[in-house]
């Protein structure tokens, strides 16, 4: 009778050492992140481009508007009337134009970034 202490294992697969597996996981995960960073696919803030430059509103595409941007920056970039914007979204007159868009929903229930984008598209239409 065979009294082998190692079970038969040739089953179309190969054993992976646990430590090698751990090294593989860490290499794949953090290596991919490194490659992405080198390739420019890395930015941890909507305020900076992958090159580190400050994001500026071009005024060409309302989709680029983000919540951290201010009323003033939108008015300047899209050349819209500030009073009309305040009236359209029922923004209280005492709200400073330096307020961030993401904070407006609290003081103006009619306001949302999506609604603002739609309104800007309407304003730009001939």
């Amino acid at each position: 009778m065979n009294t082998q202490t190692t079970a038969p294992r040739a089953r179309g697969s190969f054993r992976i050492n646990g430590l090698a597996y751990a090294a593989l996981i860490l290499t794949l995960f953090f290596g991919t992140i490194q490659v992405a960073q080198y390739a420019g696919l890395w930015s941890v803030s909507g305020k900076l481009t992958p090159d580190g430059a400050a994001v500026q509103l071009s005024g060409a595409d309302p989709a680029e508007i983000k919540g951290w941007m201010t009323i003033e920056s939108v008015v300047d970039a899209y050349h819209v009337d500030k009073a009309a914007l305040y009236a359209r979204f029922s923004i209280p007159a005492e709200t400073p134009s330096s307020a961030a868009l993401k904070d407006l929903e609290v003081v103006a229930p009619d306001f949302s970034i999506t609604a603002l984008r739609d309104w800007l598209i309407e304003q730009a239409a001939p």
Partner: peptide
């Protein structure tokens, strides 16, 4: 979300 989220998801997918 930012590009970092995309890069991390890519890293998770590759892993």
């Amino acid at each position: 979300t930012h590009l970092s989220n995309l890069a991390l998801f890519l890293a998770v997918a590759v892993t």
